[in-house]
Amino acid sequence: MKYQTLGKSGLSVSKIAFGCMSLEKGNYAENEKLLLEAFEKGIILFDTADLYDNGENEITLGKALKPIREKVIISTKVGNQMRPDGKTWDWNPTKNYILAAVENSLKRLQTDYIDLYQLHGGTIDDPIDETIEAFEILKQQGKIRFYGISSIRPNVIREYVKRSDIVSIMMQYSVLDRRPEQSCFPLLQENNIGVLARGSLAKGILPGKSADAYLDRNQSEISKAVECIKAFSADGRSPAETAIQFALHHPAVSSAVVGIRTERQLNDAISAVEKPMLSELDYLQIAGSIPVNYYKEHL
């Protein structure tokens, strides 16, 4: 496994992060085995959210990692307040909600602190200063070490960069979604804010899953990107590994958050950083296989 410092946090994170949202609901024994195997193979960053499985995902992660808590980095998210029905939720980025929600996450995760606490979304109409104040209070209390946001909205990202001490942004980035390259990555690099890239496989499309469209990409563009990924999958590297390497190649990206449910998916993700990496020329040729796409909203 390879490691990189996450922005200005000082946290050394594995280049592959375990995306816990994909864990099979209710199968604790197998999930625990998979999580511990991931750790043994070098993954130390595990990402979850209070929203996933209505808190059960955090419970699973906390129980499995409790014996090795000091050796791993746990990131979770806040901002979606579950309704009493346990199935739907409302957006709530207020100070009071965040200060209350963190207590529940700490209990579920069986820990005294969260390494990286992330706002799970965000709009330009949010009480942003109030949200930031909540995170800063939690830092002062020692309940979180660092905070960031999970967002693909350039206008929201700019405000947090300007007004807060965030250390990371979780955002979608892949061959089929290069929107962050122009609107976000330069700003984040300038301010030493790390990117946690999700969606590097584009919902499984890049490794070969059929699809008629993805974001604003049509079938022709998807086919070209998939074929290019295949063409550059050399030295025993699979298309999935190549797609992950593409996301990791950009210097703004600290880690790729990969959804993992099976041992095979785990091994594929780890192999992506163990196989020969894409050269700069390979990266540029893959990137040039289809036109760049751009954000059209929340600018």
Rank of each mutant, 00 (worst) to 15 (best):
S254K: 02
T123L: 15
S210T: 15
N57T: 15
E190C: 07
R264W: 14
E56T: 13
K139D: 05
Q285I: 06
G55D: 04
K15D: 14
K2R: 08
E181V: 00
G204N: 05
E274D: 09
M21P: 13
I128L: 14
F146N: 05
A269S: 14
L35S: 15
V195K: 00
I222K: 09
R69H: 05
A234I: 15
S254W: 01
D212E: 12
P127V: 06
Q118Y: 13
I74Y: 12
N92P: 13
A64E: 08
P276N: 12
E241N: 08
R69Q: 06
F232Q: 03
Y52H: 09
L196Y: 10
N104P: 11
M170C: 11
A134G: 12
A64V: 04
A64G: 09
I124W: 07
S223A: 09
T5Y: 11
G236D: 10
S255H: 02
S279M: 01
L187M: 06
D212P: 11
S150I: 04
K63N: 15
K224T: 02
W89K: 10
I43A: 02
R198Q: 08
S254C: 10
L45I: 03
E37G: 13
S210Q: 14
V167Y: 05
Y147R: 03
K95H: 13
E241M: 05
S168I: 08
P180W: 01
A213N: 07
Q141H: 04
E133D: 14
K230H: 08
K139L: 03
F46A: 13
G259R: 09
K71F: 14
K275Y: 12
P291D: 01
T111L: 06
L34F: 08
G55T: 02
L281I: 05
H298D: 06
K95M: 07
Y97Q: 12
M1A: 14
V253D: 01
I68M: 11
S105T: 15
P251Q: 02
N54D: 12
G19P: 08
P154T: 01
I149H: 01
L248S: 01
W91P: 08
F185G: 01
A240S: 12
E263M: 14
D129R: 14
R178W: 00
R153C: 06
K2Y: 05
S168A: 13
D129L: 14
L36S: 10
A252E: 00
L51S: 13
N80R: 15
Y160V: 02
E58P: 10
F146K: 01
S12D: 10
L284E: 10
P93M: 10
Q81S: 13
S14Q: 11
D47A: 09
E227F: 07
K71M: 06
R179F: 03
